[in-house]
């Protein structure tokens, strides 16, 4: 399961590594880290958001290990894909490797392609696809859009987004 946690770290060199090493030592896969040094708390510490993929036993071990390293867990919980975006792609979608597009989204760790419907008219004409992405939050949806737009530009694909975003 995917777990998101917020850790309180002192704003000094090496503290991020002190948090990551015990997590990795438990054999846990870190999916992504959001480390914003600009957002400081009143006591001068910073909050780092880390999303991991782990089993329950591994989580218990990790909590213990973090506490031992004097790293405070501000919040921890299972991460859910709550934000959804559906859009249409038009172009030579199959020829330009749609698997690669799906893979890039899935490997972000914060979003997945949950639905894809492809319509192909004739071989030489451009095909159309409807894609639904689910992500953990609005910010993550925006990041997915940037990934999609970069790929669309490279592969000459037109993206039709919803009018309200």
């Amino acid at each position: 399961m995917k777990i998101k946690m917020n850790l309180e770290l002192k704003d000094e060199p090496g503290t991020l590594a002190r948090a990551i090493v015990p997590i990795s030592a438990c054999g846990i896969n870190i999916v992504y880290i959001i480390h914003d040094r600009e957002k400081k708390q009143a006591n001068g510490s910073i909050t780092v958001q880390i999303t991991v993929e782990a089993e329950e036993e591994q989580i218990k071990k990790m909590r213990h290990s973090l506490e031992k390293n004097k790293i405070r867990i501000l919040s921890i919980g299972e991460e859910r894909l709550i934000e959804e975006l559906t859009f249409i792609m038009i172009g030579h979608i199959v020829d330009t490797d749609i698997k690669d597009t799906i893979g890039r989204i899935d490997e972000t760790g914060y979003a997945e392609i949950v639905d894809l419907e492809l319509k192909m008219p004739q071989k030489k004409k451009e095909s159309s696809a409807r894609v639904t992405i689910k992500a953990v939050g609005k910010e993550e949806v925006k990041r997915c859009m940037k990934i999609i737009e970069r790929m669309a530009f490279k592969k000459s694909i037109t993206i039709v987004y919803p009018v309200e975003l």
Binding site: I88, G91, M120, P121, R130, T158, V160
Partner: peptide, 25 residues
């Protein structure tokens, strides 16, 4: 700027299944 020259009947079908149409906005 992107126009409407690449819109296909299939893309309009896919939009219709969502309760939508496609417009140049």
């Amino acid at each position: 700027v992107e126009g409407v020259t690449r819109i296909t009947p299939e893309s309009l079908d896919l939009a219709d299944e969502l309760g939508c149409t496609i417009k140049l906005i």
